[in-house]
Simulated scan of single mutants.
Amino acid sequence: MSLLEREASGVAMTPDNIRSKRLPVIVNLGIAVAALVVSAAVVLGLGIGNWVLVIVLGIGFYLLGLLVVAGRVEGRRAGRDRMWKTLIYAACVLAILPLASVVWTLVSKGYSRLDADFFGSSMNNIGARDENGGAYHAIIGTLEQVGIATLIAVPLGVLGAIYLVEYGRGRFANTVRFFVDVMTGIPSIVAGLFILSFWVLIVSPWFNDGQPRFSGFAASLALTVLMLPTIVRSTEEMLRLVPGPLREGAYALGVPQWKTILRVVLPTALPGIVTGVMLAVARAAGETAPVLLVAGGAAAINFDPFAGNQSSLALFVYQQAGDASRYAPARAWTAALTLVAIVLVLTIAAKLLARRNSLSK
Rank of each mutant, 00 (worst) to 15 (best):
M13Y: 03
T14G: 09
I18G: 07
V25D: 09
N28W: 12
L29Y: 14
L29G: 14
G30F: 12
A32E: 01
A32K: 06
A35N: 08
L36T: 15
G45K: 14
G45H: 11
L46E: 10
I59H: 04
Y62F: 13
L64G: 10
L66N: 12
R72P: 05
G75H: 01
R76Q: 05
R77I: 10
A78M: 05
G79T: 05
R80D: 14
L87E: 09
A90H: 07
L94Y: 03
A95R: 03
P98C: 11
A100P: 00
A100G: 12
W104N: 09
V107L: 14
S108F: 10
K109F: 04
L114R: 10
G120I: 04
S122C: 03
N124D: 15
I126K: 08
G127Y: 03
R129Y: 14
R129M: 15
E131K: 12
E131H: 06
N132W: 05
G134S: 01
G141K: 08
T142A: 07
L143Y: 01
Q145R: 06
T150C: 02
A153R: 08
G157Y: 02
V158T: 05
G160C: 01
I162P: 00
E166N: 05
A173T: 05
T175Y: 13
T175S: 15
R177D: 12
M183E: 07
G185A: 12
S188K: 02
A191T: 03
A191Y: 14
G192I: 07
L193V: 02
I195P: 08
I195V: 15
V203G: 03
N208W: 13
D209F: 08
G210N: 05
G210F: 05
F214N: 00
S215M: 02
G216P: 13
L223E: 01
L223P: 02
T230C: 08
S234I: 14
T235S: 15
E236Y: 00
E236R: 02
M238V: 11
L239G: 11
L241M: 12
V242T: 12
V242G: 06
G244P: 00
P245A: 13
R247C: 12
G249F: 09
G249C: 14
P267M: 13
P271K: 03
I273Y: 00
G276N: 08
V277C: 01
A285W: 03
T288P: 05
P290G: 04
V291M: 09
L292S: 02
N302Y: 11
D304Q: 11
A307D: 08
A307Y: 15
S311F: 04
L313E: 01
A314C: 07
A314N: 03
F316G: 07
V317K: 12
A321G: 00
D323N: 13
A324F: 11
A324L: 11
Y327L: 11
P329R: 02
P329N: 01
R331P: 06
T338L: 01
L339E: 01
V340D: 09
I342G: 04
I348M: 02
N357V: 00
S358E: 04
L359Y: 04
